[in-house]
Amino acid sequence: MDQVAAPVLVDQATHTITLTINKIPYELKIQPWVTLLDAIREYVQLTGTKKGCDQGQCGACTVLVNGKRINSCLTLAVMKDGADITTIEGVAEDGILHPLQQAFIDHDAFQCGYCTPGQICSAIGLLNEGKARTKEDIQELMSGNLCRCGAYTNIVAAVQQVKDKL
C-alpha cells in the first residue's frame, strides 16, 4: 500500500471500434482500458446494464455477446470490436416484452430491480444454451447472478415457465 510505483505516462490513445448494440451500430473512439460494461453505460449511455461489483462476482452486468451471456465487466470493449451485443434495452421488440420479461413481472421475480437486467439476459443465454432440463439445472445455471433481495424462487419459476413453453 505504501509503495506506489512512479507514475507512468498513460497511453491515452483511442481505438476506433464498432459495437452493434441492440441492432444499432455504434462507432466508438475508446481507450483500451474501458470495460465493455463501462462502454455500454458511460459511452453509449445505455444504462439498463448494471454494475454490481465490477469484478465478475455478481452477474448484474450480464449482456449477450453474439447470443452468449457474459459478464461485461470482465471484458474490455476493444476485445469485442465488431461484436453483436444485446442489452436489456434490446430484449423487447417493438415495445412487446420478451416472454421472460413478462414472466418476471407476473412471478414478481425481482424487488429492487437492480439485478434484473442481468438476470433476464442471463436467462435468455441459458435458454439459448439449451442445457437446462430440470428446475435444479435452472437454479445451478442461474447461480452466477446474485439477487440480494432474495427473489430466487420467483426467478426460477419465471424461467421455468418460459422454458416449458419453448
Binding site: 453505460r41 458511460e42 449511455q45 445505455l46 444504462t47 439498463g48 446494464t49 448494471k50 454494475k51 442489452t87 436489456i88 434495452e89 430484449v91 423487447a92 416484452l97 420479461q101 413478462q102 418476471f104 413481472i105 407476473d106 414478481d108 425481482f110 430491480g113 437492480y114 434484473t116 437486467p117 433476464i120
Partner: peptide, 21 residues
C-alpha cells in the same frame, strides 16, 4: 397486483443513481 414499476424494471428503463449523465 403486478408491480406498477415492473415494466420499467424489466426493460432497463428504471434509472438508479448512477444511471444519470
Amino acid at each position: 397486483v403486478n408491480r406498477v414499476d415492473g415494466y420499467a424494471k424489466v426493460t432497463g428503463d428504471a434509472k438508479y443513481a448512477a444511471d444519470y449523465n
